[in-house]
Design a protein around this nucleic acid. Structure first.
Length: 527
DNA sequence: AACCAACCCAACCGCATCGGA
DNA sequence: TTCCGATGCGGTTGGGTTGGT
């Protein structure tokens, strides 16, 4: 092997580009050998490429039976096989090793893949480790074809059936709420009549374009220093709505009714660009939506951290406007791991006046909704879709704001103000809504996989003054840890709770009063 | 039947990491 | 500490297959 000048497949790039084109045509990959076959003056069997034959498989299987796995480069030395070690290893792991599961993925496997991908991103090998008998290549191929199709069809990455499944299992759901749709089946793009209210995915760069500001030049280390400058343009209100959402990325921004009011459309407004602080959560209020994640380019994994060079922002429907209870999850970076802060949302009571108001707005907007409680979010969807349309048509914001858009932005303003008023009404003297439900902090599936990680998680939660964890930790090594008990409550200041503060404020749309030094002092008795 | 586009998937490629000398 | 081979991983390629027209 060494004698070959250190090269797999001949050790140079020369034959790389031609690759399998030379091998394929023939049935069974007969006899096309590419690669450097000569080293020094001594002729060596050329390294074969392309599809494996049954004979080759048999040789490799026999070899592994005798010698065991590993030392793949020795295969060529010790057998008649003219395959490089790399190729042997690949063939073995992907096709020949025992206990491989062949055939299409089961629905359970598909769900697991989706869940794992939401947590791990494109970590195919790690995903494969949790799917017995499946290879990383298989999973990768499955995901890539599935993703390509869904993107082409304009569908979100994670169908809601998976969400329902995770909720039913008490498992961790990805941070996305999605429309009802058959798993992995082609569907037409739904531009209107959205019943399930899908999240919307809007290219990151387009968002920054729409905002008319600068996008962060790099993701790290501190793009939060870069302000986004909003210029006053006809669609200023729309942009401001976005800006308000994006600004909630930044935990230094004070969330209060005064700061969340719309700025004058005649003056530029500076907001802070998304912060990349680890403890920050991207759960920003938008009428009927929340900015729940950004999806990184090429990796397809969600994160609270927007990627300035690609990917897209994801807006999900706010759960409190849904008719049934929903799990609303937001990923947050956690030391050495990932975890979720999950809100177990009780069914939210929607006051009659708000309900009526929504109906009025619908009538005013000539909208026909079968479910009044969804109307606000549907307007949000249309707003966002309009924006998406803009970006899809390469329309950097110009002066031609449509009447529809004006109507939308008007409704947007009304709704935001109405929402605020309603929130202030329904919260207690300290600004906390007793109907908010509980917050559980729990691990991402498969991430807290041993006792030490559990302890690490425990320490972390204590350090941020987290409330008690109600759920048991199911560890992947079969152990089950008792719920973490922080019933003594937080001991830290509001500052160290910034992470939770912002999420709570935006998720529950409540406004802590300035005098409430520590929101945990006023949490519902469920804690 | 022929054509074409989309899909599937095995295999390849480049790079990163690990570990031993 | 450096070098280098072995291994692992993720992205990409391209031929075969399938389904629609």
């Amino acid at each position: 092997m060494v004698a070959h000048g250190g090269g797999f497949y001949g050790g140079n790039g020369a034959n790389g580009s031609s690759s399998s084109s030379s091998t394929s045509g023939g049935s069974g990959g007969v006899g096309v050998c590419v690669g450097i076959g000569v080293s020094g003056g001594m002729a060596k069997p050329a390294l074969k490429k392309g599809p494996w034959t049954a004979t080759e498989d048999a040789i490799l299987v026999e070899y592994v039976k005798k010698q065991g796995e590993g030392n793949w480069n020795a295969v060529q030395k010790n057998t008649s096989l003219s395959r490089c070690g790399k190729s042997c290893r690949l063939r073995w792991t992907n096709h020949l090793r025992p206990n491989l599961r062949k055939g299409s993925f089961t629905p359970e496997e598909e769900l697991l893949i989706i869940q794992l991908h939401s947590e791990l991103g494109n970590k195919w090998a790690r995903m494969a480790a949790q799917l017995p008998g499946r290879t990383d290549n298989e999973i990768k191929n499955y995901w890539n074809t599935r993703i390509k199709r869904r993107i082409r069809q304009g569908l979100p990455l994670y169908p809601s059936k998976e969400m329902a499944h995770f909720q039913g299992q008490g498992q961790q759901a990805p941070s996305l709420l999605l429309p009802e749709e058959p798993l992995d089946q082609p569907q037409p793009v739904a531009r209107t009549a959205i019943r399930g209210r899908p999240p919307l995915q809007i290219p990151t760069q387009s968002v920054f374009q729409i905002l008319g500001g600068h996008q962060p030049s790099s993701q790290c280390p501190s793009p939060s220093q870069t302000p986004v400058l909003l210029s006053p343009q006809p669609n200023h209100q729309l942009k401001t709505a976005f800006a308000n959402s994006l600004s909630l990325f930044d935990q230094t921004r004070q969330i209060s009714p005064s700061t969340s009011t719309l700025p004058s459309p005649h003056s530029p407004t500076t907001i802070l660009s998304p912060s990349y602080n680890d403890t920050n959560i991207a759960a920003a209020a938008f009428p009927g939506f929340a900015l729940t994640a950004s999806v990184h380019p090429y990796q397809h994994h969600t994160s609270p951290l927007p990627s300035p060079t690609g990917g897209f922002f994801q807006f999900s429907p706010l759960p409190q406007l849904l008719s049934a209870s929903h799990v609303y999850a937001t990923p947050v970076e956690f030391p050495s791991s990932q975890m979720y802060i999950r809100q177990m949302q009780k069914p939210m009571h929607i006051p009659q006046e708000l309900h009526d108001h929504e109906i009025n707005l619908e009538n005013h907007g000539n909208m026909s909704m079968s479910n009044p409680s969804l109307s606000e979010s549907n307007r949000g969807i249309e707003l966002l879709e309009d924006l998406l349309d803009q970006t899809n048509h390469q329309a950097v914001p110009t002066n031609n704001s449509t009447s529809l858009e004006q109507s939308h932005t008007s409704l947007l303003n009304n709704n935001m103000q109405e929402n605020q008023e309603h929130q202030l009404k329904s919260t207690d003297v300290n600004g906390w809504n007793p109907d908010m439900g509980s917050i559980n902090v729990c691990e991402g599936s498969g991430m807290v996989n041993n006792k030490s990680m559990h302890e690490e998680l425990s320490n972390f939660l204590q350090s941020i003054g987290s409330p008690a964890v109600h759920e048991e930790f199911s560890l992947t090594d079969g152990l089950s840890m008792p719920p973490l008990d922080f019933s003594a409550g937080p001991t830290t200041s509001e500052d160290s709770l910034g992470l939770d503060m912002q999420q709570i404020v935006s998720l529950f749309q409540v406004e802590p009063t300035a005098s409430a030094s520590s929101p945990w002092n006023n949490l519902p008795s469920i804690y």
